[in-house]
Design a binder for these strands. Structure first.
Lengths: 356, 356
DNA sequence: TTGAAAGCGTTACCAT
DNA sequence: ATGGTAACGCTTTCAA
C-alpha cells in the first residue's frame, strides 16, 4: 500500500509500460483500446495503470490523431434564455456523441465573434456551431469552413455561406402575426428588435444583419405592403440591446401623439420590457396596446394578461444543429442542408382589436 | 499572388521558417512572441506567416507549456436562468483573462459530474469551476484538487473540501423570509426544492445534499423551531425536478385539508410553477396563499401580483468564482477563500397575512 | 541574436 | 501478439 503523494508530473504510458514490463507500444494499445493484445498482457497493463492512477493526456492524443473531441460554440449571449435553451440542446447531443463543448459569448459583436473563431480554430476544435451576429460579415466563417472543419449555423443563416443551417420559419411567423394584427384593425404596428444599425435607425430590411430578424422584418413589411399600409419602415425600431434601451424606445413611442396600437417584440427579453414599460405608463394591454412576442419564455403564460407568443422550437434548434454537425464529424459528405423548423402562434390574451 | 487552394495539412512554424529563410527556433520565437529577435528577422517571419496564413496550433503549444488556456465548468443545468446568468459571469471574466471555457452539464447527476471531471482533467484544463450536485459525494472533486489543478466551487460549498468557494448567504436569507412569514401569522409554511432524496421524502437537513439548499432548509427549520413550530420537517418537499413534478407536489398540497398558507420556492423555475398551479387551482395569491421565491428572475416583477423574492447576486457569483480561479492560475498560493455574497429580500405583493 | 536538437505524451507504421 | 521508432507542432535549453 504505497500511499506516497502523487508526484506533480503526471504518469504516462511509458510509466505504465515499465511497471507492467511491456513495451510502450503495447501499453498504449491497451490504454488506448486499439490494436490487439493478449489477455494476460492486457490485465497486467490495466493493473499497472490502476496502481499508478494513469490518466490519459487527451492533448497528446489529439496531437497525433488530429481530432480533439471538441466542438466550439459561439452564441450572442448565453444569458438570454433563447441561447441557454439552445445550448442545452447542443450540449446534450454533443455529450452523447462523445464530444465536449467550448462556449464563447460574442455579445453580438462581430469583432469578438471573429476572434472567437480564431481561438477555436487554434484550439483545433473538430467542428463549429455559430449563431452569426451579422449575416453580411461572414468572411471569418468562410475561412472556418475552408479550414476543413465543419461548421453549422444556428438560428441565423447566410445566403453566401454554403453550410449546414438550422433556422426557424421566421418570415412565415412574422407574416402570420402581422396579418392577424391587421385583421384586428391595427395600423400602427411597431416591430422592436435588439439588432442595431450604425446610426440606430432602420430604413430597409438589408440594414438588419441578423438573418432571423431580417427575415421577420421582411415578412412584417411584406404583409403590411400587401394590405396597403405604406411607410411601415418607420415603425421598425432597432437597438433594443438592453432592457434600458428597450424602455427608452418603448416609452418614447408610447408618449408620442401617434402611438402604436400594437407592438411585436423580437424576443422575450424585449417582450418583457414592453410589458413592464406599458404598465408603468398606465397603458392597458390589450385594450390600448396589443403585444406579441417571439419566444414563448416560461413566464409568458403567467402575466396578466398572458402574452401571445410565437413558439420557437428552441431546444430543437440547438439539438438539430449539433446533430448535423456530428454527422459531418462522422464523415457525412453530401452538400449543405438547410433545416427550417416550424413555429407556432400561441394566442393568449395580449392581443385584441385596435382601439377606436 | 499565388492563390493556390490551402492544402488540408496546416502550415507549421517549420514552413514559415523555411519561407522566411531562418531556423525553426527563430520563427517560433517571433510567432510565439517570446525570446529576442532582430527587427529585420521579425519582419521577414511575420511576412512569411501572413503569406502562408499560418495558424498556431494551440494543442501543440499546450503540450509543451503544460497550460491549455482553458477552464472547465460543470453546472447542473445551463437551461436554468440561474446557471446561465452565472455562466455569463464566468465567461466574461475568463475571456478577459485570456481563457476559454469548456462547459459540461451534469443534470445534477453525480455520476455525470464525475465523468465530466475526468474528461476535463484528461483534456488538461488549467482549472475547474464546479457547482457540485451533492456535497456529500465529492471524492472526485478531492481528486481534482489533488491533481494540482485549482478548483473553485460555485453556489454550493463543501465542509470537507478546502478550496475556493463562492456562495450566497442562503441560511440568512431563509431565516429572514421565514421570520417574516411567521410574523404575518403563517404556520403552515412549505419549502419546495428540486433536490431529491432516494425515497423522495425529507426527514432531516442532512438528507439534502445540495449545499445551498441544505443551508436554506436549516435556516427555515431553525427559525420555525425557535418560534415554537414543531415538526416542520413535514413541510419540506423535495424532488421538484421538473415543472411537471412541481405541479404534482403543489397541487397535492393545495388539495389537502391542511393546505399551506405560504410556500417558499427554492428557485425561480419552481416559483413560476407554484404560481401557475395555484392560479389554475383558483387559489388567490396572496390572500389565500403567500409565495416567496429564491432568485429574482426578470419576470417576477411583472406578474399579478408581482412576487416577493430573494435577490441573489447570480452574475457576481459566477464572476467571483472565475476571478478567484484566475488568481490561482496566476500563482496565488494562500489558503482557500470562502466568499459569501449577500442576498436581499425584495418585498413585492405575493406575501400577506395568513388567512384567518 | 540565432540555430541545433531534445523533449512533451500520444498514436501509428513497420518489423519481428 | 509485441516491440522499436518515427511522427505530431510546438517550446526550450544550450551553444555558437
Amino acid at each position: 500500500m504505497d500511499q506516497n503523494p502523487p508526484r506533480s508530473t503526471s504518469v504516462t504510458v511509458a510509466d505504465v509500460a515499465r511497471k507492467a514490463g511491456v513495451s510502450k507500444a503495447t501499453a498504449a494499445r491497451v490504454l488506448g483500446g486499439y490494436g490487439t493484445v493478449s489477455d494476460p498482457v492486457r490485465d497486467a497493463v490495466t493493473a499497472a495503470a490502476r496502481a499508478l492512477d494513469y490518466r490519459p493526456n487527451e492533448l497528446a492524443r489529439s496531437m497525433t490523431t488530429g481530432r480533439s473531441g471538441t466542438i466550439g460554440v459561439v452564441v450572442g449571449d448565453i444569458e438570454n434564455p433563447f441561447f441557454s435553451l439552445a445550448m442545452r440542446g447542443i450540449t446534450d447531443v454533443a455529450r452523447q456523441a462523445g464530444f465536449t463543448v467550448i462556449l464563447i459569448n460574442s455579445g453580438e459583436d462581430v469583432a469578438v465573434e471573429k476572434a472567437a473563431i480564431r481561438t477555436l480554430l487554434a484550439k483545433r476544435v473538430d467542428g463549429l456551431i455559430v449563431s452569426p451576429a451579422k449575416e453580411s460579415n461572414v468572411d471569418h466563417l468562410q475561412e472556418a469552413a475552408r479550414s476543413g472543419r465543419p461548421l453549422a449555423l444556428l438560428d441565423r443563416g447566410s445566403e453566401t455561406l454554403d453550410v449546414d443551417t438550422v433556422i426557424a420559419d421566421d418570415r412565415h411567423a412574422a407574416e402570420g402575426i402581422t396579418r392577424r394584427l391587421i385583421a384586428l384593425g391595427h395600423r400602427r404596428i411597431a416591430y422592436i428588435t435588439a439588432c442595431d444599425t450604425p446610426d440606430h435607425v432602420f430604413r430597409v430590411p438589408s440594414d438588419v444583419n441578423t438573418g432571423s430578424v431580417r427575415r421577420r422584418v421582411e415578412g412584417f413589411l411584406g404583409v403590411c405592403r400587401e394590405a396597403g399600409l405604406q411607410g411601415m419602415e418607420g415603425w421598425v425600431r432597432v437597438g433594443a440591446i438592453t432592457p434600458d434601451h428597450t424602455r427608452g424606445i418603448v416609452s418614447a413611442m408610447l408618449q408620442s401623439s401617434e402611438r402604436p396600437t400594437a407592438i411585436i417584440a423580437s424576443d422575450s427579453v424585449i417582450g418583457l420590457e414592453v410589458f413592464k414599460t406599458s404598465r408603468a405608463a398606465g397603458i392597458a394591454i390589450p385594450d390600448e396596446l396589443s403585444l406579441v412576442s417571439f419566444h414563448d419564455a416560461d413566464w409568458t403564460s403567467v402575466t396578466s394578461p398572458p402574452v401571445t407568443v410565437v413558439r420557437q422550437p428552441v431546444y430543437r434548434l440547438g439539438e438539430t444543429a449539433a446533430k448535423l454537425l456530428v454527422e459531418r464529424l462522422n464523415g457525412y459528405e453530401a452538400s449543405a442542408r438547410r433545416v427550417v423548423l416550424q413555429t407556432e402562434l400561441i394566442e393568449r390574451a395580449s392581443v385584441a382589436d385596435a382601439p377606436a
